[in-house]
Design a protein around this nucleic acid. Structure first.
Length: 205
DNA sequence: CCATAGATTGACT
DNA sequence: GTCAATCTATGGA
């Protein structure tokens, strides 16, 4: 586990208080860590997507303005935005940009690096099925709506710097209708945990 | 490997 | 009423 944590210090407020696209790209290779008492579960992020506020991105949940559901997108950077989708799944985002400006990075996939047993138990599956999709990662860590608004900078869930991947690739976004072509998906093309489906129109950064 | 259908709830038009 | 930033099972190549 020590090799997975080049730094002892987690990502701080300033990391998230930046343009969403920069944060998204920099998150690839970082380590998402959940502490539950003495137990630690950790996933190396291998795939994320950016969703921009400010009316620039029709696919962003904040595109039509602030509502009860999307309020966290406008909140303090470094907090967690969790939403419920398709009647049964949850997805988690890291909120970016200064407070008052919407923007977030959807955490789409990760490679387990610690606490595999508990993640396997939560998922009821092993291998890539543990965490090769946004709702699968939430399921593996037990993230649900109760986590909406939690602070990644201080709480039991946080993100640590990791070893940057040899390569970061970029593509259109997955699973959305509006603005799917915007190249706001960043992933490690060498990871077997990247979510299945379209990998077309990808290119290296 | 790929393609498709069904699940199931709440936010919003 | 519509539809969603998805997953799973199933069936076929």
């Amino acid at each position: 586990l020590s090799g997975a944590f080049p730094s002892a210090r987690r990502l701080g407020r300033a990391f998230y208080d930046r343009p969403t696209l920069e944060v998204a790209q920099d998150l690839v290779g970082c380590i998402l860590v959940l502490r539950e008492g003495r137990h630690v579960s950790a996933l190396r992020l291998v795939e994320v997507e950016a969703y921009l506020g400010g009316g620039r991105d029709p696919a962003c949940h904040a595109h039509r303005g602030r509502t009860a559901r999307n309020a966290e997108l406008f909140e303090t950077p470094g907090r967690l935005y969790v939403y419920f989708i398709y009647g049964m799944h949850h997805c988690m985002n890291a909120v970016c940009e200064p407070k008052g400006v919407a923007g977030a990075v959807l955490l789409r996939a990760g490679e387990p690096v610690a606490g595999l047993d508990r993640m396997v138990a939560r998922r009821g599956r092993g291998g890539r099925e543990i965490s090769n999709g946004p709702a699968k990662m939430c399921s593996a860590l037990g993230i649900d709506l109760a986590w909406n608004g939690k602070d990644l900078v201080k709480g039991t869930l946080g993100i640590w710097p990791g070893r940057p991947p040899a390569k970061v690739a970029r593509s259109g976004r997955i699973g959305i209708r509006l603005a799917a072509e915007l190249p706001y998906r960043y992933f490690d093309p060498d990871s077997p945990f990247v979510s299945p489906g379209r990998h077309a129109a990808t290119y290296d950064l």
